[in-house]
Design a protein around this nucleic acid. Structure first.
Lengths: 197, 197
DNA sequence: GCGCATTGCAAGCAAGCACTTGCGTTCGCT
DNA sequence: AGCGAACGCAAGTGCTTGCTTGCAATGCGC
């Protein structure tokens, strides 16, 4: 019951946002009486906070199954796998991601939770790129933090825009990541190694 | 009065979304009686549609003051100027952009309007990159549509994430665009021209 | 079989919502 | 001066919201 309410709350929140996720809708989706909802959670806000926590933990656990190695070897392959998994996750929950962006800033108690997955991803990519730069696998004259930003921002935005404007962002996750990496890794390649891929 | 209501509606909608933008709040922000609002617009939905139209037209007019040339010459400088202007616009209205993303899909009458600026930008960049590819200014083995996606997605996401996680996305518009272009243009450079910048 | 915890159900509450009605006031125009 | 358009104000309608109350039904352990 507890879990069913959390799942229902996540779904309705993703679809309708905080204001739209009424306690009646959540209870109905969980096949539970609205009163029962308030017997499990003191308030709507508390319920949604718990529901978002659950979702973030689940998505991070999912991403943790395709980790970035601590010591980079094949940057293209390793980043490709990780970013494809990330994009896959974003695309699967694009509605929740977009809602979170819209909702961010309105409910301070929820803000930090809402950015949890993004922080996890950017953290890993940053660390990986720093390590890759230490090993001379990518060029040394750019800030790895900025490079991580560019990569994540691209993946991130593509995951949403692909759903919103499919005629303009038509590629599926694997193709997209391959193409983006084709561009970006060429741009990140050590400068002394000239020429093509 | 009409215009004051439209401005107020844009502001409140950007801050609070469709549900949060109550007619009372909009009227109060415009220093107008709520009844007057309904004498100018038949419904809340009609008001917000008109308000969003206005905002989109204004932002496109702003972007049109820094156009991309029909015939590319200096890709880095020309794209840099255009994307900096785009990022500046996104950053200035980041709250509206995020709200639009969250709201998108809920009100079919608003959806097309909400993506107006994005469509304009991706349209221009796509055409520019196609022209640049025709002239051999960027490599020929990548889809210019995909390259445009990567550029816009990066600008787009940075404009939002810079506000939400300033400690992770700290650079201001000019710096950001310069860094992103440094990476991406290196990746887009014609393959026969090896070496560094 | 008894007690206790968990749920459902019907009803309701105060507040907020979009939107309406009626009436009086203030204008600029002729 | 007279007229009509545009506005403010007070009040109210019917609906939805988060949340509560009271009571009856179900189930599980002892």
């Amino acid at each position: 019951m507890h879990d069913r309410l959390l799942d229902a709350a996540s779904e309705v929140f993703a679809e309708e946002g905080f204001r739209g996720a009424t306690t009646r809708k959540i209870a109905a989706r969980a096949n539970v009486n609205e009163v029962t909802l308030f017997r499990h959670f003191a308030s709507k806000e508390e319920l949604l906070a718990a529901a978002i926590d659950r979702q973030v933990e689940a998505s991070i656990a999912m991403l943790a199954r395709t980790p970035l190695p601590a010591e980079p070897h094949d940057v293209s392959a390793e980043l490709g796998r990780f970013l494809a998994a990330t994009l896959f996750g974003f695309a699967a929950s694009h509605r929740a991601v977009r809602t979170s962006l819209g909702e961010w800033g309105h409910h301070p108690a929820l803000d930090e939770r809402l950015t949890g997955t993004s922080r996890y991803v950017s953290d890993r990519v940053e660390r990986y790129l720093v390590a890759a730069q230490d090993r001379g696998l990518i060029r040394g004259d750019i800030d790895p933090v900025v490079a991580a930003q560019a990569l994540i921002a691209t993946i991130f935005a593509h995951g949403m825009l692909h759903q919103m404007m499919p005629e303009r962002f038509p590629l599926d996750p694997e193709e997209s990541v391959a193409m983006y990496l084709k561009i970006m890794l060429e741009g990140l390649r050590p400068l002394h190694a000239g020429g093509s891929a």
